[in-house]
Amino acid sequence: MSRVICPNCSRPQKVCICNFIKSIDNRVEIAILQHPAEVKQIKGTAIIAQLALTHCKTWVGEQLSELPGLVTWLTENKNVFLLYPEIDNQVKECQVFDVGQIEHSHDFKVLILDGTWRKTFKMMQLNPELQALNRVSLTPTEQSKYRIRKQKDSQSLSTIEAIYELLSQLENSTEKFKPLLSAFEKVQNQQFIFREKE
């Protein structure tokens, strides 16, 4: 017997997360480039942003050459920043800005890579266009609370935590984006309950 899949969050009905989501009208536009392995990853968190944020686009793939829609988005009239830490041998023209250095206006948007550290690093290596984007760096206000998936290190954040930190700092409003963390906590609790029943 086939599982019933929620048409909105694309998860099996028994682990549907739609009731956890509150719509948020974010001013700073977000785009997510998701590694294909993350699409059906039940522990993934990008889905929370995709469902909650009114200005959020998602593309799935490893190489920009296969994603003309994303290429167009990157070259449209707004400045694009990539949320990604500094790495060795990064393009010299690439500048890294702290969140506080970016003007709080409508003339920029942010791209986020969704995947494990190893997979996002590979995506960076495959795409010189990504390496050339100016970066925005985060100083998290608190450590990750990601309990259902192993993190690279104590400074790492899940995708949804990174988006929360980014938007709450860029738009100077932690309360506005707290529903992202609330949904994140509920999704994790749901996973623990589901595991206990197995």
Rank of each mutant, 00 (worst) to 15 (best):
P140D: 09
E196W: 09
Q190R: 07
M123K: 01
E86C: 11
L51M: 06
Q191N: 08
I160P: 03
E198K: 15
H104R: 10
Q50M: 06
D114K: 07
S105M: 13
R27Y: 13
L70D: 15
P179A: 04
H106I: 09
I102H: 01
L67S: 06
E142S: 11
P179H: 07
Q151M: 12
S105R: 11
D107F: 02
H104I: 12
I42M: 14
I160E: 04
N127Y: 03
A37G: 08
I112W: 05
G61F: 01
E196N: 14
K14P: 10
A162N: 05
F20E: 08
P179N: 04
T116N: 07
G69Y: 05
I160D: 08
V99Y: 00
S168E: 11
K150F: 15
R27P: 09
F81T: 01
F108H: 04
L133Q: 09
Q95N: 11
F194Q: 15
I42L: 13
M124I: 08
W117A: 02
V15K: 07
F81W: 05
I21A: 13
F108R: 11
E93F: 01
P140L: 04
I42V: 12
S156N: 05
E175H: 00
Q13A: 09
N127M: 10
K176F: 01
Y164K: 04
S144N: 14
M1P: 07
P140S: 02
N127W: 12
I193K: 11
K40P: 00
D153A: 13
N79I: 05
S137P: 03
P140W: 07
G61N: 03
Q101T: 05
C16M: 03
I163C: 01
T58H: 01
S144V: 12
Q191H: 12
R135L: 15
T72F: 03
I24D: 03
T58A: 06
K150V: 15
I5H: 13
E103N: 13
N172M: 02
C94L: 04
N89T: 14
K14H: 14
A46K: 02
I102S: 02
C94K: 15
R195H: 11
N172W: 15
Y164R: 11
L51I: 05
L133D: 00
Q131L: 10
E29A: 10
L166C: 07
N172C: 11
I47V: 14
C16D: 08
V15Q: 12
A183F: 08
E185W: 08
V99C: 05
F108L: 10
K197C: 12
C18A: 09
P85R: 07
E38C: 00
H55L: 03
W73H: 01
H35F: 05
A183S: 08
N134K: 13
H104K: 15
W117E: 04
C6Y: 06
Q191K: 12
A46Q: 06
S105N: 13
